[in-house]
Design a protein around this nucleic acid. Structure first.
Lengths: 172, 172
DNA sequence: TATTGTTATACTCTATAACTATA
DNA sequence: TATAGTTATAGAGTATAACAATA
């Protein structure tokens, strides 16, 4: 399957103070913060992927697609899934094909638009998703147990600011 | 090429308070924190990938491999690269092949072990890496400009605690 | 014409396992 | 025998572009 992991420490080498190109403290700090953010996320994500694979023989994209469906309640069109998963249409077709083959989702024809489908979780799909989501939640809780409630609050707040600032920046 | 992005909001649906399986506040908080962490990292990573591709026609794994070499100074053996990049040997061979074909790295035979190579950056590779690293640093600084120095400090500290806690946990 | 979704193709990255050459 | 690295194979996920059916 497709595990993932990235080094994340290496780029620190980019910091090479120089008479001309002076690397300020701010540069250092931002780079350091980014590497740390990446390291944390990658470590956690890697474990989640491993466990999803080992315990449920599935992947993060599949899990995410099912999560969108469970959340939506009445199914989603392929295009809606594409938007929400931030992935192109062809991918959604592929992932949906696999889930459908496994009996976890179905494509139902949309009454109002014969070009479109509503993709829905089957009963089995919903059951499995609930099991996965519960396990997932436990894993997360365990992984963050090293932080106090207060620390988690701080992180949520700071990351919230970061997220909205990045969201406000131009895309490229 | 291979951009990446993940939804990261969807799993929130897993939170469904229930008479039997009571979802505590801590569960909510940890999950929320994780989703936010993932969202921030993915947004930043996606932009870095896009820009690396658009400006230098390269990818994160290639950049990371070059970063390891620049950092190491005197080259690294394939196996060392494999360890540091946390990737299996076959991958390192493939990425190294591409970089070598582009004239950015060379394999030099190791004097003391004729089975092994020392992979090194060429002069062109070093030049290009320096250019990429400088740009990369600028991108990061811009992306984090929304936070004050103090906020960045806090984040670095909190993420440091998270990282070391996760590192101390069993691998699976 | 525009939109929805599929299909076809291609590429990167990843893994595992068999293999070669050297220790 | 064990180790360093390569090759072969396989699979997921991603993208783009051409295409079919329907609006």
């Amino acid at each position: 399957m497709t595990p993932k992991a990235r080094s994340a420490q290496s780029v620190v080498s980019a910091i090479q103070p120089d008479a001309e190109t002076r690397v300020t403290n701010d540069h250092h700090q931002s780079l350091r913060l980014w590497l740390r953010l990446l390291a944390c996320t990658n470590r956690i994500e890697t474990r989640i992927r491993q466990r999803l694979l080992a315990n449920f023989d599935t992947t993060l994209p599949r899990f995410d697609l099912m999560a969108q469906l469970e959340r939506a309640g009445d199914g989603l069109k392929m295009g809606e899934l594409s938007q929400r998963l931030m992935v192109t249409g062809g991918n959604v077709t592929g992932i949906t094909d696999m889930l459908e083959k496994d009996g976890l989702v179905v494509r139902e024809t949309d009454a109002t638009d014969r070009r479109a489908f509503r993709v829905k979780l089957t009963a089995a799909g919903l059951r499995q998703f609930r099991r996965m989501a519960a396990a997932h939640e436990q894993w997360i809780v365990m992984l963050f147990k090293g932080l106090t409630t207060k620390q988690k609050e701080q992180l949520v707040r700071l990351l919230g600011e970061l997220k909205s600032y990045i969201g406000s920046q131009p895309d490229s």
